[in-house]
Simulated assay, not measured.
Amino acid sequence: MTDTQSQSQSQSQPVPAAAKAPINPALAPTPSARKDTLLYLDGVSRSFDGFKAINELSFVLAMGEMRAIIGPNGAGKTTMMDIITGKTRPDKGDVFFMGDIDLTKHDEPTIAQMGIGRKFQKPTVFETQTVADNLLLSLKGERRGIPALFYRDNRKDRRTIDGILDKIRLGHRRDELAAYLSHGQKQWLEIGMLLAQDPKLLLVDEPVAGMTDAETEETARLLREIAVDHSVVVVEHDMGFVRDLGVKVTCLHEGHVLSEGSLDHVSSDPQVVEVYLGR
Rank of each mutant, 00 (worst) to 15 (best):
E217M: 12
Y180G: 13
E254G: 05
M63S: 07
D82I: 03
K200L: 05
E274P: 04
I83E: 01
T130C: 11
D205I: 03
L139D: 04
I191N: 00
D82R: 08
D91N: 15
V228P: 02
V44N: 01
I69A: 02
R243D: 09
V15S: 12
D133V: 14
G43Y: 02
T85S: 11
K167T: 03
Q121N: 09
D153E: 15
V228Y: 05
V275M: 09
A148G: 14
D153P: 11
R152V: 15
L245F: 03
G184M: 00
G141Y: 07
V242W: 05
I161W: 01
V233D: 03
G99A: 01
S8Q: 15
T78F: 04
F59K: 06
G171V: 05
G141M: 12
E56R: 10
D36S: 14
L61M: 08
K35I: 08
R279S: 13
H230N: 12
E225R: 13
I168E: 02
L38Y: 00
G141P: 08
T216Y: 06
T2P: 08
G76K: 02
P199W: 00
L170I: 10
L223F: 10
E56C: 09
A179R: 14
K87N: 08
S231Y: 00
W188M: 09
G43A: 11
S12E: 13
E260P: 08
G71I: 03
L136G: 05
G74T: 10
V272P: 01
A214Y: 11
E108H: 09
G278C: 11
K35N: 05
A53M: 07
Q197S: 04
P25Q: 07
K20T: 14
S6Y: 10
I161M: 02
A214D: 15
E254Q: 14
I70M: 06
T85G: 01
A227I: 06
L165I: 08
A196L: 05
